[in-house]
Simulated assay, not measured.
Amino acid sequence: MAKVKLHRCSWTFVKLDGHPCHKVQKALDEQGVDYEVVKHGFGHKRPRVRDLSGQEKLPVLELQNGEVYREESAQMAARVRAGGLGSP
C-alpha cells in the first residue's frame, strides 16, 4: 500500500513546534502514520508543489486515496491527530 507523502521544506533539522512543516511531521510521528518526506526549496521555487496543490505553501500531504491536502499547519496537525487521514 502506498504511503502518505509529506511535502515539506528542506530544513528537516528545524525541530521547533512553531515551524509549520515540523508541526505536521510531529503529528504524523505521534500517530504512527507511515509517510515519506518529499523535500522542496523555499520561496516561489516550488513548481512541483504548485502543480500538485495549486499553490506554493508547505506543508502539503498527499494521502493514500489520492487526495491532496493543504491547510494551515495547526489545522493539518489537528486532522492528523484526530485520525482524519483515512485508513492506514
Rank of each mutant, 00 (worst) to 15 (best):
R8L: 08
V24T: 08
T12N: 08
S53A: 15
A78P: 08
D51V: 02
G18L: 11
C9V: 10
N65R: 12
M76I: 07
R46T: 15
V4Y: 06
G43N: 07
V60E: 01
R81H: 10
L85N: 08
V37E: 04
P20Q: 08
K15H: 12
A77H: 09
W11M: 00
F42R: 01
Y69M: 01
D51N: 10
H19P: 00
G66R: 08
L58A: 00
V14P: 02
P47I: 02
L63K: 09
K57D: 04
A2M: 11
E72Q: 11
R50T: 13
Q55W: 06
L61R: 08
Q31E: 09
G41W: 03
P20M: 07
A77M: 06
L63P: 07
K3S: 15
A78V: 10
K3R: 08
K45E: 10
K23R: 14
A27Q: 03
Q64V: 15
H7F: 10
G54S: 05
E71R: 14
G43T: 03
G32S: 05
Q31T: 13
F42H: 12
A77Y: 11
H7Q: 02
Y35R: 00
E56W: 12
G32H: 09
R8F: 01
D29F: 04
L63I: 02
T12Y: 08
A27I: 04
Q31Y: 04
H40W: 05
V4P: 09
R50P: 01
F13H: 13
E72K: 11
G43E: 04
F42I: 03
M76N: 04
R70V: 07
F13Y: 13
K5L: 00
M1L: 05
E72I: 12
K45A: 11
S10G: 08
F13I: 00
G43Q: 02
K15I: 03
D29Y: 07
G41C: 03
S73G: 08
H40E: 01
E72N: 12
K57L: 06
N65S: 13
D29H: 10
V37N: 10
M1W: 13
E30G: 05
V14R: 10
C9K: 13
A74S: 14
R8P: 00
T12C: 04
V14N: 09
V4C: 06
S73H: 09
K23I: 04
F13T: 01
G18N: 14
H22V: 03
L6S: 03
V60W: 02
E30D: 14
E56G: 09
L58Y: 05
Q75W: 12
H22M: 00
A77S: 13
R50S: 05
H40A: 02
H19N: 14
N65I: 03
G32D: 06
V80L: 10
R70G: 07
G41Q: 06
G83L: 07
L58K: 04
Y35E: 00
R48Q: 12
E36H: 09
L16S: 15
H44R: 09
K39N: 13
K57G: 04
A74H: 15
S87W: 13
D51I: 03
K39P: 14
G83C: 11
V24M: 05
F13G: 06
Q64R: 15
G32F: 12
V38I: 11
L58V: 11
L61C: 06
D17W: 04
G54C: 03
Y35W: 02
K45D: 15
C21A: 10
R48M: 05
K3C: 01
G54H: 07
R81P: 12
H19Y: 14
G83A: 12
R79T: 14
P47H: 11
K45T: 04
